[in-house]
Write a protein that binds this DNA or RNA. Structure first.
Length: 306
DNA sequence: TTCCAGGTGCATA
DNA sequence: TATGCACATGGA
């Protein structure tokens, strides 16, 4: 997408594929604040303020992202990627699937091809300004271990407590802790932060990461990456997918949680059969392939807004 | 009070 | 291999 950089800012004029609310409130990231119209997002020991640019009619016409690390946040916001193209390609892939399955759709709970198309288009339109953030690996792993069987408000609270407990005090906020800082926390420390039964999982994860070779991990096949993550007690199939999607920007995975399960059963489940989450993931990745991660996020945001 | 949330591990069949 | 249950916690 088009953007300009200044010494301490990034200027976005194309609001068709950048919307601060969509990006931060779609569930991919937990460390952000909203004050008035201004969002502040935190990553590692950095922050960026996203200030909407308003015209004389009070319409948002762009954004100014204020940060000391422009290069980091250009990558973080995935600014060199064209999300209008992504959305077009999602529609192409979905239409292709509908064409191939036209006969079977007669039995669908939503038995009208037109309305099936509409639902994808509505989701893309509803979250039109979503971008998939390139988050820090460590942060993504820790945050999504906390996320399991939990709600977003609570997840945010637990993460903030952990940052306050052992992250570097940056003056106006706490940095996300380094691995070394996290390794000093006990099960009880994580419990004190509100992690509940996930406290043991967090300690396991931190221990695993201490012998983890990130460079080597990135060279592995997707299947090997997943089985590596699954070897950690506390990381299951869904969290592994989230780590790969949000921490490693791998768009070929499709995390299936309670919301995506609802989406699947409403719009895709032709025979009204009971499928496991693993089966749902298989179906959805076979439809959307290397665009799975993107559409997953649009659908999650859309479904949760209802 | 009960249900639910960006699930997972473990016992059981 | 598949299924069912327990697991902390707090907001709705």
């Amino acid at each position: 997408m088009d953007y300009r950089t200044q010494k301490d800012a990034i200027i976005i004029d194309d609001i068709s594929q950048f919307n601060a609310q969509h990006i931060l409130e779609c569930g991919q990231i937990f460390r952000y604040q909203k004050q008035g119209d201004i969002y502040t997002v935190f990553s590692k020991d950095k922050l960026a303020q996203i200030v909407p640019q308003i015209d004389t009619n009070s319409h948002v016409v762009g954004y100014k992202i204020i940060t000391h690390d422009v290069e980091y946040f250009v990558k973080f916001f995935d600014l060199d990627n064209d999300y209008n193209k992504v959305k077009q390609n999602i529609i192409l892939k979905y239409n292709n699937y509908l064409t191939k399955n036209e006969s079977q759709l007669a039995n669908s709970s939503i038995n009208d091809t037109q309305s099936q198309q509409n639902f994808i288009q509505r989701a893309l339109s509803f979250g039109s300004g979503i971008r998939l953030l390139c988050q820090d690996h460590l942060e993504a792993i820790i945050c999504f271990v906390i996320s399991q069987n939990n709600n977003i408000k609570k997840i945010q609270k637990i993460i903030e407590q952990i940052c306050e407990k052992c992250g570097l005090d940056m003056g106006n906020f706490y940095a996300f802790p380094t691995l070394k800082q996290l390794s000093k926390l006990s099960v009880q420390d994580f419990k004190d932060c509100g992690a509940g039964y996930r406290a043991e999982y967090l300690v396991n994860t931190v221990q695993f990461l201490q012998t983890f070779d990130d460079q080597n991990f990135m060279k592995l096949s997707l299947d090997d990456q997943i089985s590596t993550l699954l070897s950690v007690k506390g990381i299951g199939a869904k969290v592994a997918d989230c780590v790969l999607l949000f921490g490693y920007h791998n768009m070929s995975v499709f995390p299936v949680d309670t919301w995506i399960e609802k989406v699947y059963n409403t719009y895709f489940n032709k025979k009204n059969s009971t499928l496991t989450r693993q089966q749902i993931r298989q179906q959805l990745t076979s439809i959307f392939g290397d665009l799975s991660g993107y559409i997953q996020q649009y659908l999650f945001y859309f479904e949760r807004s209802k």
